[in-house]
């Protein structure tokens, strides 16, 4: 437990500093109101608005741990949201609609996983295929418009609240806990890390790398489906063109801010979702501070860069590893095994 806490300490400190910084520009940032049976306030907004990226980051963490990447998650959000909205609009009811959306996400993940694990395409290319073509699929489902619905139970998932707390917060927190528990209470976490660090040695040790890889991409698809459901329920409509647009990049950024190596191996889901909250704090802070919108991206880029530099012990280690790997490639150890015997 202590070790786990030490692992996420840099992210917690970063988050605290960012919140303090935002409070300077917007003094009521930490204020929380209770009105009309629900909590509200900027911090609650951060937790709620950060839900999609946090969910994507959970799945992305696992994919990156296997030394892969999933560029399709934003698009999968659009597809699953469209599928869910279509089911609701066709009168399926909430249960079946949710099942359809989640199943769609799993199928998308299965597709990516098969391309990567069985056909052996580079993850970045394999998932790029779905990233670019998937919006077309979503548009086919919505017939090119914003497919709206009016189902209180479904939209409750996006904008309702439970015990005064917005539902999306429950969804992402529970999902993160569930995945973290699944990884650490079973042997999955260890096996995922092993194939990410050295796939060939792992296979020789009897780990079923193919099945694990597929499972990891399916987990990413499932998380994207949950994010897609929240995004769709939130606006009571499926927007095939814009749902989840560019969120895959925020999710990757969250994983990196969470101190996870893009080269695979050791991972922390908790750190990744904290990374997502860091990003959302920046986004919300920019909106609240009232700067002209032309500055949004510049401010965000500057802050993200600062965050990454602040966490530089980690970054320095990654760079070191990268360099060592590159060196090893360039100059194979010349006299391996020639020690006098």
């Amino acid at each position: 437990m202590k070790r786990a806490l030490r692992r996420v300490l840099p992210q917690i400190v970063t988050l605290a500093i960012l919140m303090a910084l935002t409070s300077v520009f917007f003094p009521q940032f930490l204020a929380v109101d209770y009105q009309g049976g629900r909590l509200s306030g900027p911090v609650v907004d951060v937790l709620k608005r950060g839900a999609p990226v946090a969910l994507l980051a959970v799945g992305m963490t696992l994919v990156i741990a296997t030394r892969g990447i999933d560029l399709s998650v934003g698009t999968v959000m659009a597809i699953t949201g469209a599928a869910g909205a279509w089911a609701i609009a066709s009168g399926w009811g909430v249960g079946p609609a949710l099942l359809l959306a989640l199943a769609t996400g799993l199928v998308c993940g299965l597709w990516n996983g098969c391309l990567v694990a069985i056909i052996g395409i580079q993850p970045i290319v394999a998932t790029l295929i779905l990233m670019t073509s998937g919006r077309g699929i979503a548009q086919l489902i919505t017939e090119g418009r914003i497919l709206t619905f009016n189902d209180p139970a479904f939209s409750w998932l996006g904008s309702g609240s439970l015990a005064a707390v917005p539902v999306p917060i429950f969804i992402w927190v529970l999902t993160a806990i569930a995945f973290a528990a699944l990884m650490r209470r079973t042997a999955l976490g260890l096996l995922v890390e092993a194939i990410g660090i050295n796939r060939s040695a792992s296979a020789l040790a009897g780990i079923n790398a193919k099945v694990l890889l597929i499972a990891v991409y399916m987990a990413s698809g499932l998380c994207a489906a949950l994010a897609g459901i929240i995004a769709t329920a939130d606006i009571r409509g499926a927007d095939a063109n814009n749902a989840g647009l560019w969120l895959e990049l925020d999710a990757i950024l969250a994983v990196v801010i969470g101190g996870n190596s893009l080269l695979g191996g050791r991972f922390s889901i908790a750190a990744s979702v904290l990374g997502a909250m860091i990003i959302q704090t920046i986004d919300t802070g920019i909106l609240l501070s009232g700067f002209p919108s032309e500055y949004n991206l510049v401010i965000k880029a500057g802050l993200v860069l600062t965050v990454l530099v602040v966490q530089s012990p980690n970054m320095a280690r990654h760079w070191f590893l990268l360099r060592r790997r590159a060196q090893r490639l360039r100059e194979p150890a010349p006299v391996e095994g020639s020690a006098p015997r």
Binding site: Q28, R49, I146, I235, A243, L287, L288
Partner: peptide, 16 residues
Amino acid sequence: FTRTGGKEVMESFLQA
């Protein structure tokens, strides 16, 4: 120009 964007930004307006 998106619904999600309109909702998120309006929420921040209401807070601010």
